[in-house]
Every structure is written in structure tokens, then in C-alpha cells.
Amino acid sequence: MNDLRTPLARVHGLGSARDGMRPWWMQRLTAVALLLLGIWFVVSVLLLLRSGYVAAHLMLADPLNAVLMIAFTTALFWHAQIGMQVIIEDYVSTRWLEVVLQVLVRFLAVLGALASAVAVLRVALGY
């Protein structure tokens, strides 16, 4: 046997979930984060409904709100990626299509999180 890995390391990731516990755990961790940040987000949106651009800009330019918003969108796209991953694993049985979709969803989720962060920073840093 010319494999330096232990027997345990060799079977890691070979289960039906392929990656083991990490996505399962991150799904729950981001879920808890989104429960808290989601309440903040909904309340913030409800408070800004009646006001226009200036009030919304002032609100998001506040460092605390900017940080919470980036935390919210990052957790949001992360959680969305894992959720879509599980759905694709369950319903897409053609292997190549599954791999293409998984890669695509991951790319889009990262782009979504980065784009949100850039938009928030643009407001918060006052460009």
C-alpha cells in the first residue's frame, strides 16, 4: 500500500454527504446568526420604509449597521449556498450536471456576498 494516509483519512468524505459534518454544522451556525441578524434586518427595513435615500444612507453609513449588514449578507449567501447544495444533492442525479450546478451555486454565492459587502462599504466609507 503506497498511501501515506491513515485508513480513517482515506474514507473521510466518502459518505453520501461527501464532505462530512462541516456543511451540516455551518448550515446550523449560519442559521443561528441569521435568526439574530434577520430580526435586526427586518426591523431596520421597517424603520426605513417611509423615509427616502438620505435616511437609508445615514443608517447604513453608521459603522455598527455597516458591520451588521455585511455579517447579515455574508451569512445569508453562505446559508443559501449550503441549502441549495443539499437540494441539488437530493434532486439532481446526473453526476456531471450536479457538479456543474454545485460549482455554479458556489461561485454565485461568493459573488453575491462580495457584491453586497462592496455596496455596503461604498456607502459606509463615503465614496
Partner: peptide
């Protein structure tokens, strides 16, 4: 909600 996240993104971009 995955599609809803795009609305959040659109709102942030509009504000920026």
C-alpha cells in the same frame, strides 16, 4: 429566499 437575497443585493446596490 435565495431569490429574495437578490432583492437585498439590489437594494444595497441601489443605495450605493
Amino acid at each position: 429566499l435565495v431569490f429574495g437575497s437578490l432583492m437585498v443585493l439590489a437594494g444595497l446596490f441601489a443605495l450605493a
